[in-house]
Amino acid sequence: MPNRIRRGLAAATALLATACASSTPTAGDPDVVASTTFPVKIADCAGRRTTFDAPPTRIVTSNAAALEMLLELGAGDRVIGTGFPPGAGYLPAAIAERGAKVPVLGKTVIAKEQLLGSGADLYIDTFSSTTAGGPGGPPGEQEFAAAGIKHLHLLSTACTATTKTDLAEVEQDIERLGAVTGTLPAADRLVAAMDGTLDRVAVALGALPDDRRPSYFFFDYDAGTQQPTAVCRRQIANAIITLAGARNAFADCDADFRPVGWEEVVARNPDWIQLGVRNRGSADDTRAAFDEAERFLRDNPATRDLTAVRQGRFVRIGSEVTTVAGVRNADTVQQIARTVHPELVKDGR
């Protein structure tokens, strides 16, 4: 296990399994860590412990990001359903066929009755309390327990009490899922590959001074254009932008996401704008959505004179690999760094 993660497992918060599903998780000081043998004990952000006596065999995931982690770990054959399924072309080719075979329990959030009656023994939730239940609200922890379902969250996106400046929590999520599913060697390999990518970018960028870090705005096109939604310092996108040698235009925002006004974006006048578009199910449709997002910024009177818009400094990288924990977050760092610092990061190095 890489030293960075070994230290993190001993000191950082673990997968969230909050007893109050409607509350926002906060960081605690759990002393239970993932083990290489069973039983495996995982502590949540508040120190609450979940024990696994054996690997789960019937897993449901809240969305494509959690599903992708399990597929990459080699535990995809245990996934019996997912919400927010991956669109065509979203998953890497090596795991796309297996991912397409996973039953879809909800095109968006999974309805409470569907989830509780799924026969799952583990539900992996990417965000705090918003990715299950639908209009009726998410199941409570007592309901999960009564259905025989252990409920775990990914700490990197569910626990938003701290500023995100690196991908350590994402890597810890991968290691914890590896421990829970008995696939730690695969988790180690995934984390090592991420570390290798991040290290190469860091070496290429060197000690980049602040005045050489361009300001960067993540434009969440799918969240709406009337009032933009900014990614703030408690969101993993903040870490990705920082590691790529840029400055999140809304890093002073003490939240994970926050609705802002276009006048705020104009006042910060970003040097670069990422067109945050979710996968549309086909390469052509996704490309068209990127085109729509760029066209909006060029035609909108409030944004057409922004530095990034006038100079055509747009970054076309999907929302999912930027704002949701996953094994491709390090690749996103590399892509952004290569775009905003082409003189330093060449061919990904």
Results as ranks from 00 to 15, higher is better:
Ala27Gly: 06
Glu292Tyr: 12
Ala64Asp: 10
Leu152Gly: 02
Phe52Thr: 01
Leu190Pro: 01
Asp31Thr: 13
Ala158Asp: 06
His341Gln: 05
Gly326Arg: 05
Ile241Val: 15
Ala88Val: 05
Glu141Trp: 05
Leu205Ile: 05
Gln235Glu: 13
Ala161Asn: 09
Arg258Glu: 08
Arg295Leu: 07
Phe257Met: 00
Ala11His: 09
Val104Glu: 06
Phe314Thr: 01
Ala255Phe: 07
Ser35His: 14
Thr50Gly: 03
Val40His: 04
Pro92Phe: 11
Asp210Met: 12
Thr157Ile: 14
Val340Thr: 10
Arg213Phe: 14
Asp199Leu: 06
Asp44Tyr: 06
Gly119Ile: 14
Asn238Ser: 15
Met1Asp: 09
Gln172Trp: 05
Thr61Gln: 07
Ala202Tyr: 11
Ile95Thr: 06
Val309Ile: 09
Asp220Leu: 14
Ala246Met: 07
Val340Gly: 02
Glu292Pro: 07
Gly89Phe: 10
Thr242Leu: 11
Gly133Asp: 00
Val315Ala: 06
Thr323Ser: 14
Asn238Glu: 05
Phe84Ser: 01
Gly119Thr: 08
His151Asn: 09
Met69Asn: 09
Tyr216Ile: 00
Pro209Trp: 15
Gly99Tyr: 07
Leu344Phe: 15
Ile5Arg: 10
Gly119Ser: 11
Pro103Lys: 14
Phe250Arg: 00
Ala75His: 06
Phe52Gln: 05
Gly119Tyr: 06
Glu141Ala: 14
Ala88Phe: 08
Val333Ser: 01
Thr130Met: 10
Lys101Met: 14
Val231Tyr: 11
Arg310Gly: 02
Ile95Asn: 08
Ala168Val: 15
Asp77Ile: 05
Cys253Ser: 03
Gly182Asn: 11
Leu205Gln: 06
Asp125Trp: 03
Arg4Gln: 12
Ile240His: 03
Thr24Gly: 04
Cys45Val: 01
Thr57Met: 10
Lys346Asn: 02
Gln334Tyr: 05
Gly182Thr: 04
Thr160Met: 10
Ala179Lys: 08
Val265Gly: 01
Gly134Asp: 01
Ser22Gly: 10
Asn279Lys: 01
Leu155Phe: 11
Thr61Glu: 08
Arg189Phe: 11
Val260Glu: 05
Glu68Gln: 12
Ile5Phe: 13
Gln227Ser: 12
Leu9Asp: 01
Arg78Cys: 02
Thr18Asn: 14
Thr323Asp: 11
Glu175Phe: 15
Thr339Trp: 03
Leu184Ser: 13
Asp271His: 13
Thr51Pro: 11
Asn269Gln: 09
Asn329Lys: 09
Val40Phe: 09
Leu15Arg: 08
Thr323Gly: 04
Glu97Cys: 02
Phe250Ser: 00
Pro342Tyr: 12
Ala179His: 07
Ala147Val: 09
His151Tyr: 15
Val340Arg: 02
Glu72Pro: 00
Gly140Cys: 04
Thr229Ser: 09
Ser156Gly: 04
Gln114His: 13
Ile240Leu: 11
Leu243Gln: 09
Thr163Gly: 00
Ala27Val: 08
Ala255Val: 01
Gln334His: 03
Arg233Asp: 05
